[in-house]
Write a protein that binds this DNA or RNA. Structure first.
Ligand SMILES: [Mn+2]
Ligand SMILES: [Mn+2]
Ligand SMILES: [Mn+2]
Ligand SMILES: [Mn+2]
Lengths: 218, 218
DNA sequence: TATCATATTTAGGCAAGGCTAAAAAAATAA
DNA sequence: TTATTTTTTTAGCCTTGCCTAAATATGATA
């Protein structure tokens, strides 16, 4: 059984490994965990001794297969609980992350398996992120950033890169959610801003917005 | 915000105060928490400084109003989650306690209020125990122990005193659950054992069983 | 009342997870 | 290559909860 702190470190390393594709530096983990590098060193040493990460002094950290499995399972729980909160308890998608941060540490395989079932074995969470199955495998989607689309291309919103409350609330105001069809009516080369069509409304969005919304074309 | 350990102490003191009706001794808490008396002393001193219990050296501990409120809220969460696990996830009533022990420490008023609603604002948990409302008040029932019934009296099972897996599984085997009607066909003065009628089956039960089943007569 | 047993507290330590300050390695600049 | 900056680790300390052993208060007994 791993402690709450260990699980959070494993999760952070998992995400960072994907973002940076490669070894994860001590400082990167410290940044993500909002903790000090010296605390990170302590913890990765311990995780190393437990065989959950491969850590070499001054060289960075990667998850072992076992560590990866544990991290994927925590992420699975996080995302399943988010589905529960939105689908069953009618929370809004910008309200669920902090609660899921707590629920993800409840230990019970039986619980998570029944929850999965109760929710209809969903493949994606309310933010469009894929839910790992019990073996850590998750559906890959051919999503791209809205900012990659050209004028007159369109796509369906399938996820967000950022999922801060501010950003999600912005999307709500603009009536954009998972499943919403978005068409690029115009794109400014200078600053990457766009004019897009959502339902019957057309409006301006900055590059920053376009770089944080995933769409699926096809 | 109280720590997990603090919440567990408050809960234990709450239950003990009701069982012993009065002050709770350091040793009683240590017993219940499966910890050492010296650890209890440390903790009740801290809870005392926080104003959650009234503690005087060598005199025992009682919850303050504030401590009582927090304890009742933890118990509320525990029991609501137990209802969720049984009603929605189809767990069996003897499987839910340990999971609820973890879920009860998830902090979010909004979560528990929505969960309550989702479950239809239940008054009792799967073991027949009353669920405190958000102010800590709970429905009182006129329940008595089956062992208090006389020959030919009958009652409806409304709860269990013990809720160990062994006992609950015994009840299952005998087809007794919340709502089951039980009639006393015979009672042995010598050892308190009984012969009871449950549905069409009649069988023998020991005093120990009869002292752990709550029934409602009338 | 003096003595003995029991309950409780105090003293001193330990492990987990943090932090700060100092040392050491690695990376970058000159 | 040498000097400087940045990154990482080590050393030493803190808090929370827990423990054991020793001290002390309380309560029962003689
Ligand atoms: Mn989340
Ligand atoms: Mn999510
Ligand atoms: Mn329970
Ligand atoms: Mn219960």
């Amino acid at each position: 059984m791993n402690s709450l702190a260990e699980e959070n470190y494993l999760k952070a390393i998992y995400h960072l490994q994907r973002e940076l594709n490669g070894d994860v530096s001590t400082n990167a983990i410290a940044d993500r965990m909002e903790t000090k590098p010296s605390s990170v060193t302590d913890m990765v040493q311990k995780l190393g001794e437990k065989g959950l990460v491969s850590y070499k002094r001054y060289k960075g950290t990667t998850l072992t297969d076992q560590g990866q499995k544990i991290a994927a399972n925590v992420i699975r729980k996080h995302r399943l609980w988010e589905v529960f909160l939105v689908e069953k308890l009618k929370f809004h998608w910008d309200q669920v992350h902090d609660i899921a941060e707590q629920l993800e540490h409840v230990h019970s395989e039986e619980l998570i398996s029944r929850l999965d079932n109760f929710l209809g074995n969903p493949d994606f969470d309310p933010h469009g992120d894929p839910i790992p199955d019990k073996h850590g495998k998750m559906k890959r989607t051919e999503k791209k950033l809205l900012s990659e689309l050209q004028k007159n291309q369109q796509g369906v919103c399938v996820g967000v890169k950022e999922s801060s409350g501010e950003f999600l609330q912005y999307l709500d105001k603009k009536q954009i959610s998972i499943g919403t069809k978005i068409r690029v009516l115009g794109k400014e080369f200078f600053d990457g801003s766009m004019v897009i069509l959502v339902g019957k409304d057309q409006f301006f969005i900055s590059k920053k917005i376009a770089e944080n919304l995933y769409v699926q074309t096809s």
